[in-house]
Design a binder for these strands. Structure first.
Lengths: 218, 218
DNA sequence: GATTTTTAAATTGTATACAAGAATACAAGT
DNA sequence: ACTTGTATTCTTGTATACAATTTAAAAATC
């Protein structure tokens, strides 16, 4: 099969495709990948495959051993706790910074995302809600005005994508989550950095609880 | 103890060389790099150059625009504050985790690093002290038992290498720093996670103050 | 002279060929 | 049966050739 081609470079497409396959579990943990087989399977040469694999290695999704090859690492439940522990601190920091720095435009986007979420809650439209959840957090990353923080959090956020979907299936979690977003938004709107920090930290903590209970039920 | 496996591939060497040149300021911010010129200057083909550039882009030291090339980004003073702000939270977290999880081996390494530092303070050997400072922090990163935290902090730590050297030239900072390391070690030894967190956070905060005053004096 | 169009050069993106290292299979010796 | 040495094969690492895109420069039009 040829890969989806909406990204500008083959490397990008290969990266996205492999990332997707790893996060979906199509490529299982421990599985070893060879550049040749990927090359023939995806219908592109080894060059973009190599670049994509290196990119994945940077994100920690695969492990490259010199002259020995690539094995899938994936995201384990331990990683999940590790990531949420980091997020708890860093998203708190991002919210705090956003409360002080946010631009009118970002603030407006943030309001829109919360209001839309409240709309879709009434519609019981889980698909849109998941998307809006991601958008809410990403706006805050950007609004922190700290590009490195943005980059780190975006990456962590992507790596737990699959698990987040799971967590939002826990009953009442969607509603709770939107309520918490609303409170965080209020704190940011009123420039209350301390409160924004505290609320976001507790929001991530609740999300972790929810994810873990969802994982256990599987 | 893990052996320092020196650059076995050309890509690695190129990466290290370019990283060094960027952090040293030999390659200035805003400068644009072409694969060909780097290839002929460093005497290797474009393939490892490309890989190294992508790696540098992942770390944020250069910026790659599709089909347009690579420009040096480097680490600005704004980045410096951004990085220390992140470190304040994450190294606190790492110390906290270390206080609960540290292995006998890591603890022993940590003690060694502090004792050696105290030795070199008496000898007034700044070079060894800088090296030991790095080692102290890296042991804690590892001892957090959170590989992602380890990776994020290691990368941030590397990116401010040049500035850190500067900060340790501020009078009394070396002594102060070693004293603070000793206190952090005590907290970790006694498993006092709360205290380890608090002390490390304040340690990084002092380091930032010191870096900023050193930068201003330049 | 200014502006658009065309053309050429430079540069990145991709494919492929070749070299080097590692894993595997197998034979010989004990 | 087990180890050891060797040859073969497989896989990654690197170099180079080619394609596609972008920048610039020159030519043409107004």
């Amino acid at each position: 099969m040829i890969i989806d081609n909406f990204a500008k470079s083959l490397e990008q497409s290969v990266f996205l495709k492999l990332e997707e396959e790893i996060l979906n579990g199509e490529l299982k943990k421990g599985e070893s990948l060879t550049e040749n087989s990927l090359s023939s399977r995806l219908g592109v040469s080894r060059t973009p495959i190599r670049a994509a694999l290196h990119h994945l290695a940077e994100e920690g999704l695969v492990k490259i051993e010199a002259n020995r090859g690539v094995t899938v690492v994936g995201v384990s439940e331990t990683d999940l706790v590790d990531i949420y522990t980091i997020r708890m601190r860093l998203e708190g920091l991002a919210s705090r910074a956003a409360a002080s720095n946010i631009s009118e435009e970002d603030l407006s986007d943030l309001r829109d995302s919360v209001e839309l979420s409240e709309f879709y809650i009434r519609k019981r439209d889980a698909e849109h809600l998941k998307e809006l959840d991601t958008r809410f957090h990403e706006i805050i990353y950007r609004a922190s005005s700290n590009p490195r923080l943005d980059k780190i959090l975006s990456e962590l956020h992507r790596n737990i994508r699959v698990y987040r979907k799971l967590s939002l299936t826990v009953s009442d979690r969607l509603e709770k989550s939107v309520e918490e977003h609303r409170e965080i938004l209020s704190a940011i709107e009123s420039g209350n950095a301390e409160e924004a920090d505290r609320l976001m930290t507790s929001h991530i903590s609740s999300a972790l609880d929810s994810v873990l209970s969802a994982v256990e039920k599987q």
